[in-house]
Design a protein around this nucleic acid. Structure first.
Lengths: 214, 214
DNA sequence: TCAATAATTAATCATTTGTTTAAAAATAGT
DNA sequence: ACTATTTTTAAACAAATGATTAATTATTGA
């Protein structure tokens, strides 16, 4: 029997197939490197249908972008705010949530970074609500960290270092997995995932040590 | 008088001007998003000269790629090997060297990551000597970390976590600076650099705490 | 059942983009 | 000064790419 093609699932509506294909390719390769014909092929549909359903490549990209950005900040923003937590609890919560999400969407960090670098950020109409969400998330974290410092709960460091370290240790492995895992160029997906799951416990510990008053 | 254009320096040979422009654009935007006409304009030369001097866009990209990859691994590989150092000294050395290099070439991490993701890595002819260099650097670090552990100098952790953390904390801020610094979207370059210089001392301390046997 | 609407297709268009060509201008060697 | 060589230029080509068109097929609703 013929091998199943590594393409988007077939039991979706045409519109959904196109969106899924676009999401996959835009996320993996970015805007410029993704051709409308690639999307059509990946979705298994006629090229014209892309414009029929989504007007243009740009519009389709913006759709994917909005969804990806929601994913990227949404996981945390929903309840970082009101819930009071000790630093350790907070770390366990944030890190666990985020790594779980990234294990499901390992290409997301690359997409976001590509977005930043390419300047396609601005494309998002009027006032840029998504960048605003990131800024809000950042503000929320910084506020939390500074409160903890003022209450003498944690050591005083520039809170941006804390935020940088947390984000770095969570996100970076996902964009550099092939460097980290490279055994003569081959990435071992399973072993990588095992390590990332380990990190859900380890990163909070390291973060705690980082701010411990001795 | 006319304003000076923000383009590549004028006192270079045509060939050098093209290479410099290509390096700038390829590094900032990657292969697919950089158009030959952009390079020509940035270099202030006639489009045909690009092919006259470098045959093709691909060849020019490979040239830039090779130089960037050398930068990315060369700084460390040259003398991580033979020099025996305590863990703290080693960290101070590696982190200092690397952050200095990245302050000079802040777009380099994005270029490398873009390279990985796009698969343009393989383009480098026969056997892929550059990926080999990265693998070598990785092996060198892992060997060092495991030696330290066996000698009881540092705590036993999976050395990949150590490597991931070091690379993450050094490199990630450079690809996410606009998220980290975003004060309603504007990146404050000077403040960012100040923080990165601070990190030359801080990261080794954090790494040390991470492996301390208490 | 049948007309109206929606979805799909193949073909084509208009731009963009990488590359080439042939002629002109600049430079070097004698 | 003069010619050979190198460098530069404008123009054009061919392929790739995003988008549209007009005709065909499928679906819906009465």
């Amino acid at each position: 029997m013929a091998k199943k093609k590594d393409t988007v699932a077939k039991d979706l509506s045409t519109e959904e197939k196109i969106k899924a294909a676009a999401k996959k390719l835009f996320t993996q390769k970015g805007f410029a490197a993704t051709k409308t014909r690639d999307i059509a092929e990946e979705a298994g549909i006629n090229l014209a249908l892309l414009n029929y359903y989504f007007r243009s490549k740009e519009k389709l990209f913006e759709l994917v972008m909005r969804e990806n950005l929601s994913l990227f900040v949404g996981v945390l923003l929903e309840d970082i705010k009101n819930t009071p937590r000790s630093f350790e609890e907070q770390m366990n919560f944030l890190v666990g949530r985020y790594i779980d999400m990234l294990l499901e969407n390992p290409d997301l960090p690359f997409f976001i970074l590509n977005l930043i670098q390419s300047g396609h950020f601005q494309t998002d109409d009027q006032g840029n609500p998504v960048l605003k969400e990131i800024t809000q998330l950042r503000a929320e974290f910084l506020k939390y960290a500074m409160e903890q410092m003022e209450q003498g709960k944690i050591k005083k460091i520039h809170p941006l270092h804390l935020m940088a370290n947390m984000m770095s240790m969570i996100i970076f492995p996902f964009i550099a997995s092939s460097i980290l895992m490279a055994r003569s160029g081959i990435t071992d997906r399973k072993e990588f995932e095992r390590l990332m799951i380990e990190r859900k416990k380890l990163i909070p510990q390291w973060m705690k040590e980082m701010v411990e008053i001795r």
